[in-house]
C-alpha cells in the first residue's frame, strides 16, 4: 500500500532540479546520514513487517490440512466476505457522520476561542483539549460507567423525566455511544490545531475587513476559514484515516457490550479477531491490506474532490 502510493503522489509534482554545486556530493551523503537512523527503524519496523504480512496474506491456512499458497484468493474472499463488507460499510457510514460533526465542533470552538480572549477562554481551551491526554482504555472505561442504565447519570436524568435511560451500549444506540466517545477524545485536539492556525493569521487582515464594514461572522467565513483551510484539510485526512481504521474504542468497549459490538464490527477488529483469536494470520493480513486499499481509495478520492492534493503533500 505504501509503495503504491508513491507514483501517484510524486508525479503530481514537478521534480525540482537539484542544485549542482561542488559540495553537492558531501551534502548528498550528509542528507542520507541524517535520514538513515529513522530509515533503519522505518525499514525494520514498517517495511519488513508489512512485506512479511503481504507474504503471509498470499497463503491460506486451515486448522486441518495446513497452509498452502493461494495467491490473491484471500483478497477475493475478503471482498466477498459479508463480515468485511459490513465492517467497511459501517466505518464509511461512521466517518460520514462523525467527521463533519467533529470538524464543525472543533472549528466552531476554535473560532469562538479565537474571538474571546480572557482567562475563561484560556481555561476552556485547555479543558476541552484534555481528553486527548487520556488513554483510550481509560476513556472507554469512564464512558462505559457513565452510560450505565443502573448507576450512571443518564439513569438519574432519565428518571427525572420518567423515561427509561437510553442504552448507549445496546445495538440500537451503539453508533452514538461510540460517536460520543470519539468526539470527546479527539475534538479538543483538532480544535487546538485549528486554534493555533487561527492565531497564526495576521491580525491586520481583520482590521482591513472591519474598515470595510465586515461583521465578525463575515470575517470568520471570508477570512478565517479560508486561511485555515490547509489545517482543516490536514486534520480531515487524519480523521478519515483514523476513523476508517476504527479499532481501539469498540474493542475496549466490547466487554461491556458484546452483543452490540461483535468481533467483526469494524474491518480492523475483524482482522484482529482472525489473527489473534482464530489463529489465521494469513486471512487477517489479507483483511488488513484490503482495508489499507479502501483507506487509500477513500483518502485519494477525498483529496481529489477537494482539489487540494498538492498542499498536503508538498
Amino acid at each position: 500500500m505504501t509503495l503504491s502510493l508513491t507514483p501517484s503522489t510524486s508525479t503530481a509534482h514537478p521534480v525540482r532540479a537539484a542544485r549542482r554545486r561542488a559540495p553537492a556530493r558531501r551534502k548528498n551523503l550528509a542528507g542520507w546520514l541524517f535520514v538513515a537512523p529513522f530509515g533503519i527503524v522505518f525499514v525494520t519496523m514498517l517495511i519488513l513487517p508489512l512485506g512479511y504480512a503481504l507474504y503471509l496474506s498470499l497463503f491460506r491456512r486451515a486448522l486441518i490440512g495446513g497452509t498452502r499458497l493461494v495467491w490473491f484468493d484471500n483478497y477475493v474472499k475478503a471482498f466477498n466476505d459479508p463480515s468485511f463488507r459490513e465492517g467497511v460499510s459501517f466505518v464509511i457510514r461512521f466517518s460520514l457522520v462523525l467527521i463533519p460533526v467533529q470538524m464543525a465542533i472543533s472549528l466552531a470552538v476554535a473560532l469562538m476561542l479565537d474571538l474571546m480572549v480572557n482567562r475563561f477562554a484560556r481555561f476552556s481551551r485547555l479543558m476541552i483539549f484534555m481528553p486527548y491526554a487520556i488513554p483510550a482504555v481509560i476513556g472507554a472505561l469512564m464512558w462505559g460507567f457513565l452510560y450505565s442504565k443502573n448507576f450512571g447519570p443518564l439513569a438519574d436524568i432519565s428518571s427525572l423525566v420518567g423515561a427509561d435511560a437510553p442504552d448507549f451500549l445496546g445495538s440500537k444506540l451503539i453508533f452514538w455511544g461510540l460517536f460520543n466517545v470519539v468526539t470527546w477524545q479527539w475534538a479538543g485536539y483538532y480544535m487546538i490545531i485549528l486554534f493555533a492556525a487561527l492565531q497564526g493569521i495576521d491580525p491586520s487582515l481583520y482590521e482591513a475587513a472591519r474598515m470595510d464594514g465586515a461583521s465578525q461572522w463575515q470575517i470568520a467565513l471570508r477570512i478565517k476559514i479560508p486561511l485555515v483551510a490547509p489545517a482543516l484539510l490536514l486534520i480531515l485526512v487524519f480523521a478519515l484515516i483514523g476513523t476508517l481504521q476504527f479499532f481501539n474504542e469498540p474493542k475496549i468497549l466490547q466487554p461491556l457490550a458484546a452483543g452490540a459490538l461483535p468481533e467483526d464490527f469494524t474491518p480492523n477488529m475483524y482482522a484482529y479477531e482472525q489473527a489473534f483469536n482464530l489463529a489465521n494470520y494469513n486471512y487477517g493480513s489479507a483483511i488488513s491490506f484490503s482495508l489499507g486499499a479502501v483507506v487509500f481509495v477513500c483518502v485519494y478520492l477525498f483529496l481529489f474532490a477537494t482539489r487540494k492534493r498538492g498542499s498536503f503533500l508538498s
Partner: peptide, 11 residues
C-alpha cells in the same frame, strides 16, 4: 438481556 460480568449486571 444484559451482558454478564459487567458492572452493569453486578449493580
Amino acid at each position: 438481556k444484559q451482558d454478564q460480568f459487567t458492572p452493569e449486571y453486578i449493580s
